[in-house]
């Protein structure tokens, strides 16, 4: 297994997560702001994650052709559920006292969203991104079947060549990436949540004073 495959794998994960965040974050915000399309959006992203990865990649390949683009789109679609769900959840869970205070100070809906609610919701949003990223490391193995390369290529070749050593090495590389990402992002998440708790306490204090 070469470094090139490793890099390819990471490249696929990073690009697809970037795409998933770019699409999922606005979708999550829409779910929060407009309850009507919420149900439909949640159902669609839920179904997207239910579709078998290889089937999803196959369908996309019909339109986008073989290659990395297909994989990146596919895994991004796969990653939408945790990101959309947690964005919505994080926004819903922002302390109502803080929301009221922001409204009371005369902030506009959009100003409130970007300057108060989203920053406070961010720790939970980040949890969603972490879950999506760790899952993506595993799903990206499928890339090899639609010509996207990555560690999956090495695993698949090892199976075909009945090379147990290579299979183990490739798997180990995959697991290490997944665990390292999970751990590293978990650390960031922990510090984010601690920060948010401090903010929340202050928020509660404010709202009490107001009452």
């Amino acid at each position: 297994m070469s470094l090139k495959l490793l890099w390819e794998h990471l490249y696929i994960v990073i690009c697809s997560e970037a795409l998933a965040i770019a699409v999922g974050l606005p979708l999550g915000i829409i779910c929060y702001l407009y309850p009507k399309p919420k149900k439909a959006i949640m159902q669609v992203v839920d179904i997207l994650q239910t579709i078998p990865t290889l089937a999803l990649l196959g369908i996309i390949m019909v339109f986008a052709g073989a290659g990395k683009i297909t994989v990146i789109i596919g895994i991004a679609l796969y990653s939408l559920l945790p990101i959309v769900r947690n964005t919505n959840l994080g926004l819903v869970q922002v302390n109502p006292g803080v929301k009221e205070a922001a409204r009371g100070m005369g902030m506009s809906k959009m100003y409130r969203l970007f300057n108060v609610e989203l920053p406070l919701a961010f720790p939970i949003v980040f949890t969603g991104i972490r879950i999506a990223t760790v899952n993506a490391v595993g799903s990206a193995v499928f890339a090899t079947f639609v010509g996207g390369g990555g560690i999956g290529f090495s695993i698949y070749n090892a199976i075909k060549a009945q090379n147990m050593g290579q299979l183990m090495k490739s798997t180990a590389a995959l697991v290490i990436i997944a665990v390292a990402l999970d751990f590293g992002m978990g650390l960031i998440e922990g510090s984010l949540h601690r920060g948010a708790e401090g903010k929340k306490k202050k928020g509660a204090h404010l709202s009490k004073k107001k009452a």
Binding site: A158, I159, V175, V179
Partner: peptide
């Protein structure tokens, strides 16, 4: 749990 299913099948 992070090990993809293909590895189980392969091994």
């Amino acid at each position: 749990q992070t090990i993809p299913g293909i590895v189980f099948i392969g091994v």
